[in-house]
């Protein structure tokens, strides 16, 4: 009886914890920073930033690789095939990401072959700011 009670308590606290984490997860946004402030010290952290598209390359597998820049800093934005499919559902295709457009992007900062990247995950993580 005592063990069953402990199991019930642990189950309920686990469920409550999961619900609270879920509520926090869907409401929390990453920290907004300038593109020049995205450094390797932020690898593994989530940020929100913006910049102009200065380079664009499509991959045969359906990936789209963008590079955004302010005056000095360049950051890669890899949009993988699965994410591109998600964007298509909200009406964005690779043609919408033209060179010169300013976009905002939020996601995880990563480093690939010495180059800093921001990897968006949700459709709302990447927005075109001007036409």
């Amino acid at each position: 009886m005592k063990k069953d009670f402990l199991i019930l308590i642990c189950f309920l606290t686990s469920v409550v914890g999961l619900i609270l984490i879920y509520i926090a997860a869907i409401n929390l946004e990453p920290k907004q920073i300038e593109l020049k402030d995205v450094t390797s010290e932020l690898v593994g952290r989530s940020v929100l930033t913006s910049g102009k598209i200065v380079y664009k390359k499509t991959h045969a597998a359906g990936h789209l690789f963008l590079t955004i820049s302010d005056e000095d800093t360049k950051i890669q934005i890899p949009l993988f095939a699965g994410f591109m499919n998600t964007l298509k559902e909200v009406g964005l295709t690779e043609n919408d990401f033209e060179i010169g457009l300013k976009i905002s992007v939020s996601g995880l900062v990563d480093e690939y072959q010495g180059q800093l990247q921001i990897i968006p995950r949700r459709d709302g993580d990447i927005k075109i700011l001007n036409d």
Partner: peptide, 18 residues
């Protein structure tokens, strides 16, 4: 349950990924 927990904590902004 731990799988759902993993999906939530590994894919949210609650705590830095590292």
């Amino acid at each position: 349950m731990t799988g759902i927990f993993g999906i939530l904590v590994l894919n949210s902004y609650l705590v830095p990924a590292q």
